[in-house]
Design a protein around this nucleic acid. Structure first.
Length: 257
DNA sequence: ATGGTGGTTCTACCA
């Protein structure tokens, strides 16, 4: 049975509650990964999401970060972990298993400024993620990683590479983690279907970035070889970025056979 | 070169 999986950094689930429910209702994905809840589990709109027929796995955090994986009520799944590093201080990771496929929702550290302790934390976090990916590929365990990677993979994923040259999302060390996932056999779902530039998932609130089309592509689905074999489509839904009081990110969706 | 916006713990910090 085909499955539609989406990912969206909502930039506060409280501020974006109506957008989240509207998008869920209109698109009815089987699974939705959301990031940047900016609140703890107490203030997550679990009942509203439930009313639309979904259950939520929540890893909240007060103030910033926070992730949730929203799953259609009739889907059998197993919660694997809400920690990447082990006893994570920051809420950035939820891993579930559905039909033998691991589905990992991430909110990767931003890492700015570069260089800094925050950038070192980003690198250590990504080292752990790459290690996990390598282990799953070695075991031929089908899996996917979706979410806000906070990595601009290539020049064409950025409206102005020069403006982002020294940014923690675009420096070589950051891009190398994306490359390591690819070099270990994973596919960027969007790039399986579309090699063109000017396809973005984030537009800054500042300087009229949305109106000018000044975006970057930082929200991705990376799929293991077995998961890639099932991949039917990948699309970016720009619409919610144009809504009133939008998130600065917009959803990305994949379909698996 | 600076500042521009928007979210949160209400205010400095994060993106």
């Amino acid at each position: 049975m085909p499955m539609k999986i989406a990912s969206w950094n909502v930039n506060s689930v409280k501020a974006r509650k109506d957008h989240l429910l509207k998008w869920l209702k209109e698109n009815s994905p089987d699974i939705l990964f959301i990031q940047e809840l900016k609140t703890d589990g107490e203030h997550y709109p679990e009942e509203d999401v439930k009313a639309l027929g979904y259950v939520s796995e929540i890893r909240g955090q007060k103030g910033y970060a926070g992730v949730a994986t929203i799953i259609k009520g009739d889907i059998d799944y197993t919660l694997i972990s809400k920690d990447l590093l082990g006893k994570d201080e920051q809420a950035r990771y939820i891993e579930i298993e559905v039909g033998g496929t691991r589905m990992i929702n991430i909110y990767a550290p931003n890492g700015n400024p570069y260089p800094s302790e925050k950038f070192d934390f980003k690198c250590n976090w990504y080292k752990a993620l790459v290690e996990k990916a390598k282990a799953y590929i070695k075991d031929e365990k089908p899996f996917l990683i979706g979410g806000d990677f906070n990595i601009i993979p290539e020049d064409k994923d950025c409206y102005d590479p020069n403006a982002w040259r020294d940014d923690a999302l675009f420096v070589l060390e950051a891009k190398s983690f994306y490359r390591q996932l690819v070099n270990n056999g994973m596919s960027d779902a969007f790039r399986v279907f579309n090699g063109a530039g000017e396809h973005y998932t984030f537009w800054d609130y500042q300087a009229g970035a949305w109106q000018r089309g000044n975006g970057i592509r930082i929200d991705h689905f990376m799929l293991s070889p077995a998961a890639t074999d099932r991949l039917k489509s990948c699309s970016i839904d720009k619409e919610p970025r144009g809504w009133e009081k939008p998130s600065d990110h917009t959803p990305i969706c994949i379909e698996l056979a």
